[in-house]
Amino acid sequence: MKFGVVVFPGSNCDHDAYHVLKHILGRDTEFVWHGRTDLKGFDCVVLPGGFSYGDYLRPGAIARFSPVMEMVVDFARKGGFVVGICNGFQILTEAGLLPGVLMRNRTLKFICDYVHVRVETTSTPFTSRYRDGEVLRLPIAHADGNYFADEDTLKILEDEDRIVFRYSTPDGRIEDSSNPNGALRNIAGILNRERNVLGMMPHPERACEGILGSRDGLRFFESIIDAIEGRPFL
């Protein structure tokens, strides 16, 4: 089993993801430079958080044309697991692997804080170790996390059970007051139709050790390991 963590110029959560996969979970993990043009041998690829290409033009707009992204699209089409966290989520939407767009936070401010998210579905390779409706405490750190998609797309996401996380109160209520950035329907994370590509704004890789304030992210990565090992998640 092998994980890849893509490194774009400006990625800054690549080492966090690598640390969790390699040192906490003890899995074979490799950094993948953005200029690389093959992903042979990988089971899961993580697009980490950061500010690829300085967020110039739009977050993710330039990174999506990195040579490695063509490989990531191909890898996803063949069923490989792809996770985009924060800037990684923005890149996945720009690349067309996930619908919608992450717009500027409604407050116009960069937010670095803990938030609560409710697990909306456990029928995914990324959340099978959680309970339906479970509330997680995860950090966010972004200026552009305000999820937007047209009404038709939102309906499809809901009908196909593709909304994975929503910003919630600590007791799991979905309210505007629990929405840090203005994301439509409090959306914090979504899946593609085939359920092998996930994008999310919160950072599970920064919530895997007690000393960092939360371990709620660990089961996210453990779920992926289960899926790679062939345990069913649907």
Binding site: A61, E94, P99, V101, F148
Partner: peptide, 8 residues
């Protein structure tokens, strides 16, 4: 392709 995001 690049300069605008047709979604928004």
């Amino acid at each position: 392709r690049l300069l605008s995001n047709p979604v928004v």
